[in-house]
Design a protein around this nucleic acid. Structure first.
Lengths: 99, 99
DNA sequence: TCACCTTTATCGGTTATACGATATCGGTAA
DNA sequence: TTACCGATATCGTATAACCGATAAAGGTGA
């Protein structure tokens, strides 16, 4: 299951070009806790060095063509791995109502 | 994003009590590659030691009550983190058709 | 009995993910 | 100019997730 953070970051940048701090904020929204700079900047550096991200003069990241392909692969394997995601959601919502 | 493998294993066992080899097979189906024993048995051991799993005389694992609660928590944070999962699926299927 | 096979389990080592501390860099206000 | 501040980046360290090799345990068939 390694590579999920990279996958999520690729997905976020795919939706909208973002800077490091914007990505940090978005992850905080989703996960409930703010990732430390020591988490996200090394990932961004790695993705950039692998040619999946490019960065403009305002430090705003965007996907390269290989980055888009990588994201597609991740999406496919994600939905293979969580092939019963609707069932998961049902159970989650069901237990939500019990509170 | 750490803890996703444990989460997935809890989910599988929640659906159906399973042995280690059955879990290995299921993960192979989903992920496309067979996890090595050095991956899954340490996880099962850890989950058992944390009181989330119990094991019967046939080496078949099942969720304990704390295990069910842990799974619920994981499900909630999973759908928070991937709050735009329908959008992800749309994009994935869209690129699927292009082939 | 004993040879074999599958399953279960452990071991050492690698990489991704994560933190907090610290450093650098650029812009802005004093 | 200088002081500060948020954003960016690096560092050391820890843990989860992985692998392949190996070992032990249990069952089955010769």
């Amino acid at each position: 299951m390694k590579g999920f953070l990279s996958f999520l970051i690729l997905w976020l940048i795919n939706k909208k070009n973002m800077t490091g701090s914007e990505i940090t904020e978005e992850l905080e929204q989703r996960k409930g806790s703010r990732p430390s700079p020591g988490t996200i900047y090394p990932v961004l550096k790695d993705l950039k060095e692998r040619g999946l991200l490019s960065i403009d003069e305002n430090k705003r990241y965007s996907l390269t063509t290989p980055g888009e392909k990588e994201l597609d692969q991740h999406l496919k394997s994600f939905f293979n791995t969580f092939c019963d995601i609707d069932e998961m959601r049902t159970q989650c919502q069901c237990h939500e109502e019990q509170k």
